[in-house]
Simulated assay, not measured.
Amino acid sequence: MSRPIPWLSTEETTVRRTPTQVALVTATALTLVACGGGGDDKDSQAPSAPTGVSVQAGSALSAHVMWGKAKDNVAVSGYVVYRGKEKVKDVSADQLMIDVTGLKPSTAYSFSVRAKDAAGNLSSHSDKKAVTTPAAAAEDKKAPAQPLKLRGKHEGSRGAALTWSAPAKDEGITSYDVLQGGSKIHSVGGDATSAKVTGLRPGTDYSFTLQARDAADNASPASAPVELSTPKGSGDDPDTAPLAFEANRSKSDKDGAYYLDLSWLPPEIDGDVPSYEIHLNGKLTTTLVWGNNPPVGRSTESVYAGKKPGVTYKVKIRAKLPDGEWGRFSPELTVVTGEANS
């Protein structure tokens, strides 16, 4: 059994999963999905084409592509973004936007999106949306000024409307990025003074900021935050804790160290979980950040627990939700190193 590099329990570590690591961790779950439970019936029905596709030039070198959810008779497993006839990227089923980089200034492009399912069926292309990148400003290293007067209000229990003021003078702004929890969640054109944010959770406090971006891809300082709360609706408060959390102990034959072998299922929420926090004895110890698509099904992680027997650990985990907020903690489990059969 391979082991992670030991860490000091008083320090925080971040584990970034490469696609290969994710594949190894979840090989069994992926095999089960691919086999479809051993049935003879094959899913031959393709998903519907994504709707609501929009494209916004983020700078002279990038574009922001967004789309709405597609439908499938079983389930949509992901999306494929195209620039003209060329495939740009595969993304997970909960990801409904990407930033396409490496473009050329003053150039016209056309983007479309296809949905796919676990059986490999691809939808037809969405409507193609055209965009032209702005001209590059030579040797432009000056960022736009900080956006001002950001305001916001909730729209129902799952959305928000943000507004702000245009700058007093021309700042050469090509787009505005909306950030939540430090992560970009939306982008609109440089002439916009409002944005709609969807996919929020009911009964939750949010803090949004805004950044302006110019044609040279210089980003302004973030605006002052605007804070708002979505109302809680009947039946709109799902449990956001990881499910079926288990913690066991093991001992390495190689270095004689003890490990806490953790496993869990993602919380039942709309969208994938991009990362998890592991807390030992009430303190954050490790952050797991998945590379590319998060694993399918049960996740596993071995945590170094030193070489001393008889040490008690209390361990719990929580997930970072697709809206950038942290979910509830799992039940806290107790594991003792060096017990019988360890």
Rank of each mutant, 00 (worst) to 15 (best):
A135E: 14
A135N: 11
A135Y: 08
A136M: 13
A137V: 15
A138N: 03
A138Y: 05
E139N: 13
E139V: 05
D140V: 02
K141D: 11
K142N: 07
A143W: 08
P144Q: 07
Q146R: 15
P147D: 08
P147W: 13
P147M: 09
L148A: 14
L148V: 14
L150F: 05
L150D: 06
R151C: 00
G152A: 10
K153C: 00
K153F: 02
H154M: 02
H154Y: 12
E155M: 06
G156I: 05
G156K: 09
G156H: 08
S157I: 02
S157F: 09
R158L: 04
R158H: 08
R158S: 09
G159L: 01
G159W: 02
G159V: 01
A160V: 03
A160R: 03
W164D: 08
W164A: 03
W164F: 05
S165M: 10
S165R: 13
A166S: 12
A166F: 01
A166R: 13
A168C: 00
A168K: 13
A168R: 12
A168G: 09
K169T: 14
K169E: 13
E171R: 07
E171N: 01
E171L: 08
G172T: 06
G172P: 01
G172H: 06
V178H: 02
L179Y: 14
L179A: 02
Q180T: 07
Q180E: 12
Q180K: 03
G181D: 07
G181T: 07
G181L: 05
G182W: 11
G182N: 06
K184I: 05
K184E: 12
K184F: 00
I185D: 05
I185P: 00
I185H: 06
I185G: 01
I185L: 04
H186S: 12
H186I: 00
H186W: 04
S187N: 08
S187R: 15
V188A: 04
V188P: 01
G190P: 01
G190W: 10
D191H: 12
D191M: 04
A192I: 01
A192P: 00
T193R: 12
S194N: 15
A195N: 10
K196F: 04
T198P: 00
T198A: 12
T198H: 10
T198L: 10
T198Y: 11
G199I: 11
L200Q: 12
L200T: 10
R201N: 15
R201I: 09
P202S: 15
G203T: 11
G203I: 10
T204S: 14
D205R: 15
Y206G: 09
S207W: 08
F208K: 11
F208D: 09
T209Y: 03
T209F: 01
L210G: 03
Q211A: 14
A212E: 11
A212P: 02
A212W: 08
R213D: 03
R213L: 06
